[in-house]
C-alpha cells in the first residue's frame, strides 16, 4: 500500500512538471517578442525541471542516482539564468528595431 501511495505522489509531481512544460510551450507561441518569450521559457527551465526531477528522485529512492539527479537540478539552476542573461544581451545588442518593443528608462 505504501508503494502505491508513493506511486501516486510521483505521478502527481511528474505531471505537475509536465504541466509547467505545456505552459511554457503555449507561452512561446502566444507571446510576441523574444524578451517576452524568455519569461515563458523560464517556467520550464526552473519549475518544470525541478518538479520532474524531484518526482524521479522520490521514485528512485535513496541511492547514487538520486545524488546525480540533485546535481542536475543544481547545475541547471546555475546555468539556465546565465544563458538567459546572455541571450537577452544578444537580443539587446543585435536588434536594430529594439525601440519598437522596449521602452528604455531615461537616465537620471
Amino acid at each position: 500500500m505504501a508503494e502505491w501511495i508513493r506511486f501516486w505522489i510521483v505521478a502527481a509531481i511528474l505531471f505537475a512538471g509536465i504541466f509547467c512544460y505545456v505552459l511554457e510551450v503555449i507561452g512561446i507561441f502566444r507571446f510576441g517578442y523574444v524578451l517576452n518569450r524568455m519569461h515563458a521559457s523560464g517556467i520550464g527551465d526552473t519549475m518544470g525541471l525541478l518538479l520532474i526531477v524531484v518526482a524521479l528522485m522520490i521514485a528512485s529512492g535513496w541511492n547514487f542516482t538520486t545524488l546525480k539527479l540533485l546535481l542536475l537540478i543544481i547545475f541547471m539552476w546555475l546555468t539556465s539564468p546565465t544563458s538567459t542573461h546572455f541571450l537577452s544581451m544578444v537580443e539587446m545588442n543585435t536588434n536594430p528595431y529594439l525601440d519598437r518593443y522596449v521602452r528604455r528608462r531615461e537616465k537620471t
Partner: peptide
C-alpha cells in the same frame, strides 16, 4: 536569431528531462 537559440535551449531542457 535569438528565438532560435532560445528554442534550442528549451529543446535541450526537454531532452534532459
Amino acid at each position: 536569431i535569438t528565438d532560435r537559440i532560445l528554442c534550442i535551449n528549451m529543446i535541450g531542457t526537454l531532452v534532459i528531462c
